[in-house]
Write a protein that binds this DNA or RNA. Structure first.
Length: 389
DNA sequence: AACCTTTACAACCGCATGGAT
DNA sequence: AATCCATGCGGTTGTAAAGGT
């Protein structure tokens, strides 16, 4: 296929951008907006290819980009997410909205990777290379658990991404869909000063990291407030890929109760079955859900519970769509004031926190605890997470 | 001061994907 | 269905600045 490569055209500048180039690009985008990158350089008077312009814009000139030193919390987030997601920089970047994937990737490669290595931790597997940190032995079960954790987290992220995408498509004509969008979209409005919950002391790698960091900076362990780490729960931009896992989802009564408590406080996890039990789902939405997934295949009666052991459940036999959609539904119903939402109240308009704001804050606060508690509950043998008594 | 090495980061490149025609 | 195009992503490279000898 003879794809045209704009960068192969002669006479185009390569290499570092000059202030003049930046100014031209900025001025053009200010006036015409971004997009049509191929045509942009000629119109903007730039001797650059469109790709180069797009990159310069998204990685450097775009407003809202935070530059400079990464905070401890940002470092922790990157390490944690890298353990879960691997080199999916764009996915990681959605959890650090002011950082670009390129910047995170560079920071990982030039700082974090080396420092982890120095700490005796393999940056790719996140396993200790030696027993120097007092870590326990790593075995194949650990690796399997890590893999399951990553899969579970991926499923959650992709579910949220799907939710955002779908709700945007349907929001105009369907108030229920507006509710879905409201509960998931406006990460940009989350107040920067929201306090982060204290992370449970269960991350071996991060704890070691903390200690190292606090030694070098004099900072305390797990600073929880005033940092600008934003909740990763809301702003996601993933493609939905087929997930190669099938397993059976089943919940006991107690586990459903526990899950309900959990769902009341967090958007992180829950199941379709739970929602079916608790929420009077509007017919319209129910129909849509029934049409787009295998709700009826869901069982939640006995034996293994994915809530208590999501990794195990995922590894067994439940269609992933159930799990994924489960997350979606909890998000959809995780707002306290359903009536006002359905009535079409303005939510988070103009950056103001309105009827749903309490939940955003709650979700923000519960995010880490939720993930880590789940992980602790379900993967005592995890290579990354273990109870630190 | 000159040279070499390392570090940090911007930018590039190739590929994948999805939509439009 | 085939092709083109725009865009996104992740790996890699280029290079200026900083540090060391």
């Amino acid at each position: 296929m003879g794809r045209c490569r704009c960068c192969e055209k002669g006479g185009l500048k390569k290499g570092p951008w000059t202030p003049e180039d930046d100014q031209k690009l900025l001025a053009y985008i200010e006036e015409h907006g971004q997009g049509s990158w191929r045509a942009l350089p000629a119109k903007a008077g730039l001797q650059r290819c469109g790709k180069s312009c797009r990159l310069r814009w998204t990685n450097y000139l775009r407003p809202g980009i935070k530059r400079g030193k990464f905070s401890l919390q940002e470092e922790q987030t990157i390490i944690l997410l890298h353990a879960l997601l691997g080199n999916r920089w764009s996915a990681i970047a959605t959890h650090l909205p002011k950082r670009t994937d390129n910047e995170i990737k560079n920071y990982w490669n030039t700082h974090l990777k080396k420092r982890l290595t120095k700490m005796g931790i393999d940056p790719m597997t996140h396993k200790p290379k030696t027993e120097a940190l007092g870590s326990r032995r790593w075995d194949s079960k650990d690796a399997a658990n890590l893999s399951h954790m990553a899969q579970w987290e991926s499923a959650r992220l992709e579910a949220e991404a799907r939710l955002v995408r779908e709700s945007k498509l349907l929001a105009v004509s369907n108030p229920i869909q507006q509710q879905v969008m409201i509960s998931s979209a406006p990460v940009q409005n989350i107040n920067k000063t929201l306090a982060q919950p204290a992370l449970p002391p269960c991350l071996d790698v991060l704890k070691a990291w903390q200690e190292l960091w606090s030694k070098s900076t004099g900072a305390g362990i797990f600073p929880v407030a005033g940092d600008d780490l934003e909740s990763p729960t809301f702003k996601l931009n993933f493609s939905v890929n087929a997930f190669p896992i099938e397993s059976t989802v089943a919940l006991t009564e107690n586990q459903v109760a526990a899950a309900l408590d959990f769902a009341a406080n967090s958007s992180v996890t829950c199941g379709v079955g739970i929602i079916k039990e608790v929420c009077e789902m509007p017919e319209e939405l129910k129909e849509r859900l029934d049409n787009t997934m295998s709700l009826q295949e869901m069982t939640y009666t006995t034996e293994s519970a994915w809530f208590a052991d999501p990794f195990r459940a995922m590894s067994e036999s439940t269609p992933l769509s159930n799990i994924v959609e489960g997350f979606t539904d909890v998000l959809a119903y995780n707002c306290d004031d359903k009536n006002s939402l359905l009535a079409g109240d303005n939510i988070m308009e103009n950056g103001d926190k309105t009827s749903c704001s309490g939940n955003f804050e709650e979700n923000n606060n519960h995010y880490w605890n939720s993930i880590l508690n789940l992980v602790n509950a379900s993967s005592s043998g995890s290579p990354v997470f273990y109870s630190n008594k």
